[in-house]
Design a protein around this nucleic acid. Structure first.
Length: 720
DNA sequence: ACAAATACTGTTTTT
DNA sequence: CAGTATTTGT
């Protein structure tokens, strides 16, 4: 057998070694899809002698791209720099830099993130003199992006006599103008421009069709309309494509991803070979069985049944908490037990639907002295102080970037307030020029107060000086100069609180980032400064590299996709939270929530806990939730309830009931959650023990007969 | 021009 | 409740 196929199962080997043809690999959770992708690339190069230059591999995250790159290089034992491997966005970026003029862009365009985008949209709304109450930046931004994700320009959309839509279209159009004037491109635009480039420019299209002999796409269920069209334009009779994805793990529909693209692929392309990877190497079969049962409640699935050779494993434990604090305490207790038994903390993940849920858990973990790490939140290049510094750099690279100009003109304070700014804005609007030019003219024509004239003048001078310096100095020196000359550093040094210290540290970190920055050898014609700025927007930087500490991982179920942990807690599994309130009335969104639950469950390798709280403090109000429908959909077979509602009287009476800790053994010798044998009812799980003597009532969930309440002294129970 | 006070608003976020 | 955004007051 070929060494590349050695470690693969039959389906995986088929995907890797089949002769090049359009292929759909339906890869279930934990079925080794990355492995297939990596081996396929290696196979193409090693066995079929494809040049790396003729392979295009697309992923959604930089992390995934980096992983594929390093694993391929590891197998081939040679660098694969010639290969086009990256995210949709980074590839689009590269294409647009190479073909800027053909794409109708000026060479030094800059990329903006969604925060900058929102500001620009806001500006567009203001410029159109619209009421910001009826046309919120948020809604408008969402409108614009969803249209761009579908590949639509304002002119191609009909408002259907709907005044509201028509206005949103006007905002879209105005926003486009603002972007163009400042030479800015947002994330969606990056992709849309490439689509338009490919569809309108036959020469370029045929060039890339010829160049890419084989195209691989990861996480295909997450592609949006534009990305799909983009790929479709690249494929002709002479090249082939392999897409890898899992319709059951499509959880980004709200961001424009179209699961249907998987199905569409099999119809749009001729003779698509479909390969299913159904053997799971991650979870126990109990977990898989439950996950399969859950996802079976969705319709329009491609169909897939995960199985495992692993032992059945422990049942999924369901904990009915009395409130969110009780839930957190339960999780804490289980973690302590796990660690006591020799488990390590980074084997543990606590997954939740929304970020706000981490707080209560954090409080308990802190109290117990358990180290933890919360994923998500601000990323490095998104932090305000870092973006301030970057805005200076953007302005140095392009003085006509109004967004950058407005961000830094009075930050740190230079005494240029709303009054002066209004003059500058008005002038730029009247004369159709950038804020930079407006400032220049307002200074020379004395249109500002003497004080403001001085401040603006020296600001302009400073930027010009920095621009001058940027041509001779290297990148990290420029960054260093920027944070000093701008006054950002001084500003943070004077305010002497903990926050400022942290911010200062981040700026220093930015200097190091610049120092360590290596230019992508594929784009030599870009200045280091512009290159670095693009990198900063395209790769916001998780900063997850550092902490190697052994700590519990806290994250949303969305960010858990692709990861795996021996012990997983899914918390807040309640109607209205998970599935989320906003998804309850829409069957499609509800199914996406279910897929999210599926993703969450399939993260677990050995043990899975799911919990819900009867009452939860949310937005300052107490909310009563029912257990999530997802819990009942899993069924009873693979599940063990740790405590039932009998304990839940207290929230209604307002009197707190002494809580039973399940780790504590009851004086009867039995403890909650324990497996017992009854002469008549057979095997069961102890759900609750009420009372402390022989008259204690015991509640047991029997696998054959269901839940029964018994008197401890009469029930002849034996542990098993 | 800035700090303080008040109003508002709450999923998920690969780029 | 808690964070942000905007408005108000000096």
């Amino acid at each position: 057998m070929h060494p590349l196929l050695h470690s693969l199962n039959q389906a995986q080997a088929q995907a890797v070694s089949s002769k090049p043809e359009n292929t759909l690999v339906l890869a279930g959770a934990g079925s080794g899809k990355t492995r297939v992708l990596v081996h396929k690339i290696a196979w193409l190069v090693q066995e079929l002698h494809y040049s790396p230059f003729s392979i295009l591999a697309v992923t959604f995250t930089n992390k995934a791209a980096a992983e594929i790159k390093s694993r391929v290089e590891n197998i081939l034992q040679l660098p694969v720099n010639g290969m086009w491997l990256g995210t949709f966005h980074s590839l689009a970026h590269r294409l647009l830099r190479t073909h800027a003029v053909d794409a109708g862009l000026s060479k030094d365009f800059q990329i903006i993130d969604s925060e900058d985008q929102k500001k620009l949209v806001k500006k567009a709304i203001k410029a159109l003199n619209l009421d910001e109450e009826t046309y919120t930046p948020k809604e408008s931004q969402w409108f614009i992006n969803s249209k761009k994700d579908k590949g639509q320009r304002p002119k191609q959309i009909s408002a259907d006599n709907d005044e509201h839509i028509q206005t949103l279209l006007n905002i879209y159009e105005k926003y486009e103008n603002l972007c163009e004037e400042s030479n800015l491109i947002d994330f969606a635009e990056l992709l849309l421009r490439v689509l338009e480039l490919f569809s309108e420019n036959e020469e370029i299209r045929t060039h890339y069709q010829g160049r890419f002999k084989y195209i691989l796409v990861d996480e295909f269920q997450d592609t949006n309309t534009v990305q799909y069209k983009w790929l479709k334009l690249l494929v002709n009779q002479n090249n082939k494509m392999m897409i890898v994805g899992d319709d059951d793990q499509s959880i980004y529909g709200w961001r424009g991803a179209k699961v249907e693209n998987i199905n569409k692929f099999t119809k749009d392309f001729k003779d698509v070979c479909v390969i299913r990877l159904e053997q799971n190497y991650r979870s126990t079969s109990v977990i898989l069985k439950a996950a399969n049962k859950l996802i079976a409640n969705n319709d329009e699935r491609m169909g897939k049944n995960l199985w495992s050779e692993k032992e059945s494993g422990e049942p999924i434990r369901i904990y009915a908490a009395f409130n969110e604090i009780d839930e957190a305490k339960f999780v804490k207790a289980q973690i302590l037990t796990w660690v006591e038994q020799g488990g390590s903390r980074n084997e543990i993940a606590i997954l939740y639907r929304s970020n706000a849920q981490s707080r209560v858990i954090e409080e308990q973990l802190i109290q117990a002295g358990i180290p933890y790490r919360v994923y998500g939140g601000m990323r490095f290049f998104e932090r305000a102080e870092v973006k301030d510094a970057l805005a200076y750099m953007q302005l140095i690279a392009n003085q006509h970037n109004d967004a950058a100009f407005e961000r830094v003109i009075n930050h740190p304070n230079r005494g240029i307030g709303q009054r002066s700014l209004a003059v500058l804005r008005q002038y730029s609007q009247d004369n159709f020029c950038s804020m930079w030019d407006s400032a220049k003219n307002c200074v020379s024509d004395n249109l500002l107060t003497p004080k403001a004239t001085g401040s603006v003048g020296s600001f302009l001078h400073m930027i010009s000086m920095l621009k001058e310096a940027s041509t001779t100095k290297d990148l990290s020196e420029i960054v260093d100069l920027v944070i000093k000359q701008s006054g950002l550093k001084l500003h943070l040094q004077t305010s002497n609180d903990e926050k400022s210290r942290q911010k200062l540290e981040n700026l220093q970190e930015l200097v190091s980032a610049a120092k360590n920055f290596v230019m992508d050898e594929n784009q030599i014609d870009l200045s280091p400064l512009s290159h670095f700025l693009s990198h900063a927007s395209l790769e916001a930087g998780d900063m997850q590299g550092e902490s190697y500490q052994d700590c519990v991982q806290l994250m949303t179920m969305h960010s858990a996709k692709g990861l795996e942990f021996p012990l997983v807690f899914m918390i807040g599994v309640e109607e209205g939270l998970f599935p989320s309130q906003m998804s309850l009335d829409d069957p499609h969104r509800l199914q996406e929530e279910r897929r999210l639950c599926y993703v969450g469950m399939t993260r677990a390798m050995q043990k899975l806990y799911m919990s819900y709280a009867e009452v939860r403090r949310l937005y300052g109000k107490e909310q009563y939730h029912r257990p999530s429908r997802f819990i009942s959909e899993i069924g009873k077979d693979d599940v063990q309830e740790v405590r039932t509602k009998i304990q839940m009287k207290s929230p209604f009476t307002g009197v707190s009931v002494p809580k039973k800790t399940i780790s504590k053994t009851h004086m009867s010798g039995f403890k909650l959650g324990q497996q017992v044998m009854h002469p008549k009812f057979g095997e069961g799980t102890i759900l609750d023990i009420d009372g402390n003597d022989a008259n204690a009532r015991i509640r047991i969930n029997f696998s054959n007969t269901g839940v029964k309440n018994l008197i401890l002294s009469f029930a002849k129970l034996t542990p098993c």
